[in-house]
Design a protein around this nucleic acid. Structure first.
Lengths: 344, 344
DNA sequence: GAATAAAATGCAATCGATTGCAAATTTTTT
DNA sequence: AAAAAATTTGCAATCGATTGCATTTTATTC
């Protein structure tokens, strides 16, 4: 049965007319307001369904001053492949979508290039969204701070140890870095590279864990082993290639800040016939779906993204009710696989 | 300099008052309407910037009946990992975001589980969005057809050879299937599996290409080689494992409908020490970023996603102006890598 | 300098739903 | 059966920007 497009657009007023009630009654009936007699409610709801009616969101938002939309901003580092490619970030977006929908909100997707610089203005004051979720602290928190300062509801995925005027949700980066490193050390590694970008708060934490694990195992940390690179597989690939070319194989383990980085490094090593994990053990971060499909399967640190999404949404909605918020650390676990299993 | 939150919300009317003009003038000035004197325009625009003003989107949408929002629906197959994980789909979303922003539109993300069943109603008649982009035809086009029937602006990513009342943008699936298969055949494969879900229009086309390539090379096609599986790495992994267990290695090539499927198959083969490509050549589809990082790097079929996104947006915007639309085929190229390079 | 044309601005209706308060209806109480 | 209470429903203002048309101001022409 095809619903024909009626000549005139169906509004609440017209629906009310058909039902023989006022618009107020119709409005209330549609949202199951107990002020309206049950029978009337059902009748109008049925009528709405029959006529294929749905409330005009623009009008409703204007009147109620609520949009039920949340802007999710991918806060990316400029000129980095991390953007469209990073499976972890996109997975998080997927989870957020679910979590938001479950609470009756919709997801407006943006990235930091596109959105104007003034997030508070652009998204909130303009009534495009009720709140903002920022994925990634980036290298500078200037934009985030600015938005937060103007008092809008906002949460951030990042380093939960950072103290900020807005709630930050993140994995336990220190622990992640620590356990990954410890794992490698316990399998005999003596010189472990740390591959990542130290300008990120999250990465710094992981690096602290990396250092502490060394200290706890009485293995010296060589600054030469901390390698600042872009968080992309390509950068990792190039770096490892060049390092080996220059120094030979002067390491026997790698801790990477993401699986993408690990995969880039892995590729470089394989091409040079470096045995994994026999010659070099390697650990990633994020547990993207491909980690276990790699050969050898990749040891990595998993952050519970579903928990993360739920938590972020909760913290955001709390702000709508002026409830207190706090940083949250999500489950962070080492997934040990073949890329680190020395036999010795 | 911190902008303090003013006691009363700043509206166009108040801005106009400050500027000493009417709201009509202020409104026109802000959108650079030449009806307004250039000097007045600049003055008001400056004032708006200074006071951190931005137009109320809800009010504007209500009045103009345009939202400048496009709903992007991930039309997924139920209960499949394909959802949140498939890097290809998410990449497409990223590209769409860019393409839409470039045209002054925003992206509202949904998936087919969340959005109610009546897309036309939920997104368009409710003024949540001006148009819909559907990613994936899914197994049934019922929802799409229904939405299209009610005359709303819509485009679909899928099989461009399908004739439908809405424009479909897609890669050349026949060609993709054909070239991948031909490539394997030309490197000596004699029994090539086709791994995928034949209920998809896109996959069917690829399968046609697969068959034709066999015919052109005078290699018989065995129906036993067409394997219907879910489009996930896990399903592929299991299938290959079980097949080998049951039949031994009764094939020497695999054409997969996605890279994820290829990776699953690859994993199964490696675990059984099947040489790649020496014993079995394998080709994927999508050219996700990991394809080249695999070991061996994965031969695959790349579809130009950026072109796809631009094309989809164009076709959608055309509908706003009642311009004619048509199906579009985007660039589809074989990327030959190590996973298929036999030496014989 | 008056008349006409051109440029700039303002008036006021409109988009469609929501909601405080008043009015009408029904039910309960005495 | 009248009064009081409880239940339903409706009136009308409101949210904030846009735009056709009318009006005012400025520039041009004779």
């Amino acid at each position: 049965m095809v619903t024909l497009v009626s000549e005139t657009k169906l509004t609440l007023a017209k629906l009310a007319e058909i039902a023989g009630v006022s618009t107020s009654t119709a409005s209330r009936a549609l949202k199951d307001n107990p002020l309206i007699k049950q029978e009337t409610r059902s009748r109008i709801q049925a009528l709405a369904k029959e006529h294929n009616f749905s409330i005009n969101a623009a009008a409703s938002r204007l009147r109620t001053q609520k949009t039920h939309v949340i802007a999710v901003i991918l806060n990316l580092i400029d000129n980095t492949e991390q953007s469209t490619t990073d499976p972890f970030l996109l997975k998080l977006v997927g989870e957020l979508n679910q979590a938001l929908n479950a609470k009756g909100y919709e997801l407006l997707l943006s990235n930091s290039f596109m959105a104007s610089d003034d997030w508070a203005n652009y998204f909130i004051r303009s009534q495009r969204a009720d709140g903002i979720i920022v994925i990634g602290q980036g290298k500078s928190t200037a934009k985030i701070d600015r938005a937060a300062q103007s008092g809008i509801p906002i949460v951030v995925w990042g380093d939960a140890k950072t103290d900020a005027p807005y709630p930050i949700i993140g994995g336990d980066n220190y622990l992640g870095g620590y356990t990954a490193t410890q794992h490698l050390l316990s399998h005999g590694a003596k010189r472990i590279l740390f591959l990542g970008d130290s300008e990120h708060a999250e990465m710094q934490e992981r690096h602290k864990g990396y250092s502490q694990a060394h200290r706890d195992a009485n293995v010296p940390v060589d600054p030469q082993c901390t390698c600042a690179i872009d968080i992309t597989s390509k950068a990792a690939y190039q770096y490892i290639n060049e390092r080996i070319k220059a120094n030979g194989l002067d390491f026997d383990g790698i801790v990477c800040v993401s699986d993408m980085v690990a995969l880039g490094a892995l590729k470089a090593l394989k091409e040079r016939y470096v045995g994994i994990p026999s010659d070099v053990g390697i650990a990633g971060y994020d547990d993207i779906s491909l980690a276990e499909l790699m050969h050898p399967s990749l040891t990595t640190v998993r952050q519970n993204t579903q928990q993360a999404a739920t938590e972020m949404v909760t913290q955001l909605l709390n702000q709508f009710e002026n409830k207190p918020t706090e940083n949250q650390v999500v489950e962070t676990t080492l997934i040990a696989r073949r890329s680190t299993k020395h036999s010795d």
